[in-house]
Design a protein around this nucleic acid. Structure first.
Lengths: 232, 232
DNA sequence: AGCATATGTTAACGATAGGTTAAATTAATT
DNA sequence: AATTAATTTAACCTATCGTTAACATATGCT
């Protein structure tokens, strides 16, 4: 259960990078060091990280560009930027991309440790929702979220659209429990406003239509909170 | 659903405090300003906040001491410290207490806004997932405050409205003991006046109707003080 | 007892959230 | 470019929720 947290460290200054890597390793983290944005993104795709620490100023691909690419793959990946300058626009740019924190070089290593700890702690929760599982059985249905196939008993499968698919998966991951509206909106729609919310309602209706083949499966609403996939 | 986020701002410099309060108000937050740690804690207990912004250096009670008291009442209250100095020990002390962020004066107001937004965003989600107790049994009832379900013996559950739900939860947390009127009003209604008080009475009546299935459970009034959930 | 105030209870109303279908728009394929 | 799939927006309707008014009863005080 207590395996080490994996951190991707992207830093072009080799001296500083290696020192920092070793310091973090001593503090019980698994570190992968990349020396520029290109390499950083390759390694990001290759391994599964809990946190990325990115230097902002790097040749070939700067930290912001890399951050954008990372967020495209995984919106919830926690990011810490390291930077020599602390220009207002840069700081704002970082937060806009979704930085969890920002450290100006030279920084104190203990402060970095605390920030890492704090960020990993609060992100533990959302990690629960990221699952590689893609085959699900519930009541008389079989659902493959990779193929986006939903099958009832011996019927042919029906194909689900990407949004239907993600929504059903989230409901299943919370089965018999509340799936907060807001969670689906921020995860699937990436925005939480009146229109995305209504769009989600439309998808709930579509899923209900698919699921009504089975009287033991229902999607209930909890007013103002979210939905609940009930399986008898 | 879209009510403003409430922020407690504790800042001893009146000029700065008022400017900051107005700036945040303009950005659609509900701000309560306190001018020292004492007042800050009083107001913290009285209202229900989503975030506290604390100046570190204040007379009578400094920001760290106040933070400790706040965390004692609510471990998950997000905190941002404001400070003129950026001594390493201070920063670390702040993170140890559980600061979510740290801003060195003078700070850029846009950066503050981004930090507030980021902190509130992640706290909204984790609040749903957190380990807070939500299943209760008392006499012949089972109560799930996450799903807002109240079940009597083998009957089907009845659904509770958000206010019924919160009120019942508060009564249970004080079972066989006084639940002060004022506490429910400030926590649930977020205001204490004639009308909210009458509204609360209406909800007490609604709960009584739900609970009358079980003769061993009663909600008693303590005149002028509050209510008591009595379980034989 | 007589009064002021607090509480008990019900019903009506307006505001907002959700259910559903269809049309309009956008994105993906062919 | 044409066709199809996916998604959003609009429209209309129902359900839920909270507040408030109205009237009744209880409590504490002088």
């Amino acid at each position: 259960m207590n395996d080490k947290k994996r951190i991707l460290l992207v830093e072009d200054d080799p001296n500083f990078g290696i020192i920092l890597r070793d310091f973090l390793k001593m503090n019980d983290y698994d570190i992968v060091l990349a020396k520029n944005g290109m390499e950083g993104f390759e390694k990001f795709k290759k391994y599964d990280f809990h946190l990325c620490i990115l230097d902002v100023m790097m040749p070939y691909k700067d930290g912001f560009t890399l951050a954008g690419e990372i967020k495209e793959v995984n919106q919830d990946m926690p990011l810490i930027f390291l930077t020599a300058k602390s220009l207002k626009e840069d700081v704002l740019k970082g937060y806009k991309i979704g930085a969890d924190d920002y450290l100006k070089k030279p920084f104190d290593s203990d402060v970095l440790l605390y920030k890492i700890k704090a960020i990993l702690k609060r992100n533990k929760l959302s990690a629960v929702l990221d699952t590689e599982e893609f085959e699900f059985k519930f009541s008389s249905f079989e659902f493959n979220s990779k193929l986006r196939h939903l099958k009832f008993k011996d019927n042919n499968h029906v194909k689900l659209s990407p949004k239907e698919n993600m929504l059903l998966k989230m409901l299943i991951l919370h089965k018999n429990d509340l799936m907060p509206r807001e969670l689906a909106l921020t995860r699937i729609w990436r925005d939480d406003n009146y229109f995305t919310s209504r769009s989600m309602d439309v998808y709930i209706a579509k899923l209900r239509k698919q699921l009504e083949l089975d009287p033991n499966v229902k999607i209930n609403n909890i007013h103002g909170e979210g939905f609940r996939l009930v399986i008898d």
